[in-house]
């Protein structure tokens, strides 16, 4: 009889299995491995944050935190997997800035409202990188050149309509230049975009300044500006956009830890507290310093408000660019 119920249908059966989970989760969470879903590839910035955090959370809770890659579909696959997991505290994931972009592009219906935010993992400020042999010494040189010859200078660093595409489009837009005046050449990510920059295939890569740190130190690329309100501590010589050309445009990617909506509040609170403790510790600082990332913490409530603001801002840029479909 019982067996028949289970085999009756996937939906019915999974409800049966999931129902007691919520109860037992509150009893003694965590008592089995917790999955940390990462929507982006192994080796990238998000993966780096997730693996470092998972390793430290594992020590904190004395319970395995397993990083699970769910890549592809421009982030849709992984973000959906997090939102659709059973909200029992045993599946969490890294939700990135794209959650406020994908739905504007019509790729998914998911928004930040479909998650229970835990805490911010980091803010990743965008920079404007050019090759070391580029004639542009300052951001003003570059902006003037793009203004004089719209369409001639190509930029790259992520997919079409990705975060860094919006960074450059928004910057140009704020300077009363057509947002597509530096046409976008899609790439798999910042690493391949930067390589193309050094190879002379494109002229501008507006990716995170931390992603360019190795080539910056090697003297192969130059960072003209960072798109933040104040200078980035790891790169004190690089001016802000405001200092360089007077525009108020800023662009920061964020990555955060979130759980499926409906995850018990006490589990979220315990995770948030653990993340806060880890971020204040030396290992996290050291891991972030190594790659030129900062340490930025926000709790659940702050993160919710921040992600909602980010969502609105990018919606505006995407409409200006004509790539918003909704």
């Amino acid at each position: 009889m019982k067996r028949r119920t289970f085999l009756g249908g996937t939906v019915a059966a999974s409800t049966v299995v999931a129902a007691p989970a919520v109860v037992s989760a509150q009893a003694a969470w965590p008592n089995r491995p917790v999955q940390v879903i990462v929507p982006w590839g192994a080796g990238g910035g998000t993966d780096y944050h997730a693996r470092t955090m998972a390793t430290l959370l594992e020590r904190e809770f004395r319970n395995p935190f397993t990083v699970v890659q769910r890549t592809g579909g421009s982030g849709v696959v992984g973000h959906s997997a997090i939102a659709e997991a059973a909200p029992d505290g045993y599946t969490i994931g890294t939700v990135t800035v794209e959650i406020g972009m994908m739905h504007w592009a019509g790729l998914t219906k998911l928004t930040v409202a479909d998650y229970a935010p835990i805490s911010l993992l980091n803010l990743i400020p965008a920079g404007v990188q050019v090759a070391a042999n580029s004639p542009w010494r300052t951001l003003k040189d570059m902006v003037d050149a793009v203004r004089a010859n719209p369409g001639r200078h190509k930029s790259s660093g992520t997919g079409q309509g990705g975060i860094w595409h919006l960074a450059i489009a928004g910057l140009l837009n704020s300077m009363q230049i057509r947002p597509d005046a530096a046409p976008w050449v899609p790439s798999e990510g910042a690493a391949s975009g930067l390589q193309d920059l050094v190879a002379g295939g494109v002229d501008i890569v507006p990716c995170a300044i931390a992603e360019a740190s190795t080539l910056l130190r090697a003297g192969r690329v130059r960072s003209l500006a960072v798109m933040t309100a104040s200078r980035v501590p790891a790169f004190p010589d690089v001016p802000t956009v405001k200092e360089a050309v007077g525009s108020d445009w800023t662009c920061e990617s964020f990555l955060s830890l979130m759980a499926p909506k409906g995850t018990p509040a006490d589990v979220v609170a315990r995770l948030d507290a653990a993340v806060k403790k880890i971020m204040e510790g030396p290992e996290w600082k050291q891991a972030m310093d190594a790659r030129g990332f900062g340490v930025n913490y926000m709790g659940a409530g702050q993160l919710q408000a921040f992600a909602t603001r980010s969502n609105e801002a990018f919606g505006g840029v995407m409409r200006a660019l004509g790539i918003a479909r909704t």
Binding site: V17, P20, A21, S24, N31, P33, Q35, T66
Partner: peptide, 15 residues
């Protein structure tokens, strides 16, 4: 290898 094989019925037995 930490592959998240589904636990299903065995979850409450193993954990």
């Amino acid at each position: 290898l930490r592959v998240s094989l589904p636990l299903g019925l065995m979850r409450d037995v193993l954990y």
